[in-house]
Design a protein around this nucleic acid. Structure first.
Lengths: 239, 239
DNA sequence: CTACTTATAGTTTATTTGACAACAAGTTTA
DNA sequence: TAAACTTGTTGTCAAATAAACTATAAGTAG
């Protein structure tokens, strides 16, 4: 099967052979105003015109699945350095009404502030939805989203991936609210603080929050290097 | 693409349309003599003749991926009620030398005693290997195995799935050794016992181990019904 | 200067974990 | 038949962790 693509450098239309009957769909998570959000696209053509679904695409014959997912993300959001991980393959025979298509689900964690969504040429519109205000999704995308949330909840407790949703510099309260939102729990501020600082993953900055009408909190930064060194020493992140 | 299958009831050869360029490969775990094992098959034909790999197969156009994995397991081992879970899709462009093929990995946990391996018509031979004595595996099957082990380690700590590797009736020591082997740690007998019994997942039987040359241990049984009820009440298995 | 809000530090109690001793119930050996 | 041995099972205790809550600090707004 041959599909149209936009060449990165020239911007021109080019054709590539893609895998048959296999697609990619990606749950893109963002975090803003204390709420977890997902980027959805509105289909501009085909049988599901006007309906919302996860951004997706084809896999070129010559690229790995992971590369395809990265490319998809870049085409849609201009984002380059995001946290991206495969969920699994979804393949109920009737998941796509017109044909037998298996899709490979991914989820991404992005820093919302850093990037602008650009509607790709396969989507007439794209926007962020709070995860508890999602519209009905096409095909089995609801199922994929549900699975991704489960996966995210698990992952966030076993690896320091939450930072991918926050700005470079953040306060401990922001971090805590992120955990509260993802895990759907209430946490105790002093205890959370202690627990996290004890791991020594965060680099405290000589800088404070700005523009708040109360005592400004200290800003912190997650340092992947420190984490790497700690894991090499046998440290195991756990929340 | 059309492939040959053996009809379950008649035993005759039948033809089915299968998905193109997508396969399934399954890591089948067993447990015996305190050791974790994996069932491998030796390829009887094709470019990898004589080499060992994970059992795999095609996905019929009309069946779900999960069904295909179940069918594969049944064809190979006559096993029906096994624990089976998808890992993820593996799709490096060069993973299969002759063509671009994406494979969907699964892992299964089986009670070794209950079933006999029968060499399927796609494998000239099949046998169990201890996980630290595996031969080199074809294609990316080594990678798939490694991933499955990681997944199993994680899963076994978050859900009571280990029982799928043990006989119906087992002693607490057997269970502990299973955990020790999977997680690659040493555990304290009294503490393990307490921890596990406290969860009240196990039904103690009025029966004891037989044929041992020392005090016989009490036999226990895992009761999925109890587990189900507990989870409904908000219980969360954790080890 | 006072009220208010959030940050941050400290305290105290309950719970869990880990290490280990002690005893019980069988088997083997002498 | 008794002692030695092996593994099962129960009990104890100190240390570490987690949870709940109090107190104080630092800033803003009126």
């Amino acid at each position: 099967m041959i599909k149209d693509f936009i060449d990165e450098e020239s911007g021109e239309k080019v054709k590539h052979a893609v895998m048959n009957a296999i697609t990619i769909d990606c749950v893109i998570f963002g975090f803003e105003g204390g709420k977890l959000e997902v980027l959805l696209v509105q289909h501009g053509q085909g049988i599901s015109k006007g309906e919302w679904g996860l951004p997706g695409g084809w896999i070129k014959k010559t690229e790995s699945i992971d590369s395809a997912a990265h490319r998809l993300l870049q085409e849609l959001t201009d984002i380059d350095d995001v946290y991206l991980e495969q969920l699994k393959a979804f393949g109920r025979p009737d998941r796509y009404p017109l044909d037998r298509v298996i899709t490979i689900g991914y989820y991404a964690l992005v820093k919302k502030e850093d990037y602008n969504v650009k509607a790709g040429f396969t989507a007439s519109d794209a926007r962020w939805y709070k995860i508890n205000e999602l519209p009905d999704l096409i095909y089995d995308h609801g199922e994929i989203f549900k699975f991704s949330l489960k996966q995210l909840r698990q992952k966030v407790r076993q690896a320091p991936v939450g930072f991918n949703l926050l700005p470079e510099k953040f306060t401990l309260l922001q971090l805590m609210q992120l955990y509260e939102e993802i895990l759907n729990v209430e946490l105790d501020k002093p205890n959370f603080r202690r627990k996290f600082l004890k791991m020594k993953l965060l680099k405290g900055l000589d800088e404070k929050q700005k523009g708040v009408s109360h005592r400004a909190a200290k800003l912190y930064k997650f340092d992947p290097e420190i984490y790497k060194k700690l894991t090499e020493k046998g440290f195991n992140f756990e929340f």
